[in-house]
C-alpha cells in the first residue's frame, strides 16, 4: 500500500524553483553536483586522490601540450590514433565471427551441445589472461591488443546471437507454416527483426568488453596507445594522470554508446514500444544485464 500511494507534495515543491529542482532534470543535475562535491571531499581526505579541477587541468594539458616531470605532453590524438584502429579491427572481427558462430549454435542443436560448455569456459576466461598470453605470443606491439579484443569479445557476441535465434517463438514459426509463408519472406520478416535486437546487444557487449580488453593489453604489452599512456603515469606515481586517463576511458565509452550505438539500437527496436522521454530504466537495465556478463578482467 505504501508503494501504491505517493506522498503528498509539500509546499516547497509547488514553488517554481522547487518544481525545477524536483523535476527529472533537476534531480539529474543535483546528482552531478553531489558527485563532484563527493569527489572533492574524497580528494581532500585521501592525499593520493586528485580533485576534479586538478584532473580536468591534467586532461587539458594532456591535450594541449607542455611538459610534466620530463614527459612530453600533447600527444593525446596520437595515442587515440594508435588505440582506435586496434579496437576497431578487433571489434569488427569478433562481431563477424561471433555472429556466424552464434547462428550455428542457435539453429543446430548438435552444435549447441558441442559448444555450449566450452563457450561457458571462454565466457569465464578473464580478458587479462588473453592479454598475458597474447603478449607472450606476439611481444609488444599492435597484435596483442587486437587479439585480446577478438578472443575476449567473440564468445559474448556468439552467445547473444544464439539467444536471438532461439528467441523466435515456435508459435510464430507454426503460424508461418499455417499460412505457408515462403522461406525468404520468413527470414526477412520474422527471423531478422527478432535477431537484430540481440545483434545490437551483442555489439554493445563487444564494445565494452573490447574496450576493456584493448586497455588491458596496451597496459601490459604495447609501446603506445591510451592504455600504455595510463600505465606510464601510474608507474611514475602521477595519480592525476592515472585518474585523468580513467576519466577519458569512461567518457570515450559513454560517447560511443550515446552517440553511435544507442541511436542505432533505438532504431532497430522501433517496433518494441513508443518512445518515452522519461528516464528509461528498463532500457538501462537491459544493458546492465548484458554488461553484467562481461569479463572485465
Amino acid at each position: 500500500m505504501s508503494v501504491a500511494t505517493r506522498l503528498n507534495r509539500p509546499p516547497f515543491k509547488r514553488s517554481p524553483v522547487g518544481r525545477a529542482l524536483t523535476s527529472q532534470w533537476g534531480a539529474r543535475l543535483t546528482s552531478y553536483v553531489v558527485f563532484i562535491i563527493g569527489w572533492q571531499l574524497l580528494a581532500m581526505l585521501v592525499e593520493r586522490v586528485p580533485g576534479p579541477w586538478e584532473t580536468l587541468d591534467f586532461i587539458w594539458r594532456e591535450v594541449s601540450g607542455g611538459d610534466l616531470g620530463g614527459v612530453r605532453r600533447g600527444q593525446f590524438l596520437e595515442h587515440f590514433g594508435a588505440t582506435v584502429p586496434r579496437f576497431a579491427i578487433g571489434l569488427t572481427t569478433s562481431f563477424v565471427v561471433g555472429t556466424v558462430v552464434g547462428i550455428a549454435i542457435g539453429s543446430v542443436s548438435f552444435v549447441r551441445a558441442l559448444l555450449s560448455d566450452v563457450l561457458l569456459v571462454f565466457l569465464a576466461l578473464p580478458a587479462i589472461i588473453w592479454a598475458f598470453l597474447t603478449v607472450m605470443w606476439y611481444g609488444l606491439g599492435w597484435e596483442a591488443p587486437v587479439y585480446t579484443v577478438i578472443l575476449s569479445a567473440t564468445p559474448f557476441v556468439a552467445v547473444n546471437v544464439a539467444q536471438g535465434v532461439r528467441a523466435v517463438s515456435p508459435e510464430l514459426h507454426r503460424m508461418s507454416d499455417a499460412f505457408g509463408v515462403p522461406r525468404n519472406r520468413r527470414l526477412r520478416s520474422l527471423m531478422l527483426p527478432a535477431v537484430t535486437g540481440y545483434l545490437f546487444t551483442g555489439l554493445r557487449f563487444a564494445v565494452i568488453i573490447g574496450w576493456n580488453a584493448v586497455l588491458l593489453a596496451e597496459w601490459f604489452g604495447a609501446t603506445d596507445g591510451v592504455g600504455w599512456r595510463a600505465r606510464l603515469w601510474y608507474d611514475a606515481a602521477r595519480y592525476r594522470g592515472f585518474i585523468g586517463w580513467a576519466i577519458i576511458f569512461i567518457v570515450f565509452i559513454f560517447l560511443l554508446d550515446g552517440l553511435v550505438l544507442s541511436p542505432i539500437q533505438k532504431r532497430a527496436f522501433r517496433w518494441r514500444k513508443s518512445a518515452s522521454d522519461e528516464v528509461d530504466l528498463e532500457h538501462g537495465l537491459a544493458d546492465m544485464e548484458a554488461i553484467a556478463k562481461t569479463p572485465f578482467l
Binding site: R28, S31, I208, W211, L216, F242, I250, F254, D287, M288
Partner: peptide
C-alpha cells in the same frame, strides 16, 4: 530514480580496469 539513474547505469558500464585503478 532520476537522481541515481545516470550514476548507477554509468557505473555499470565502466571498464573493470578503471575500477581496479
Amino acid at each position: 530514480k532520476a537522481f541515481f539513474h545516470d550514476g548507477v547505469v554509468g557505473a555499470g558500464s565502466v571498464p573493470g580496469i578503471v575500477y581496479a585503478m
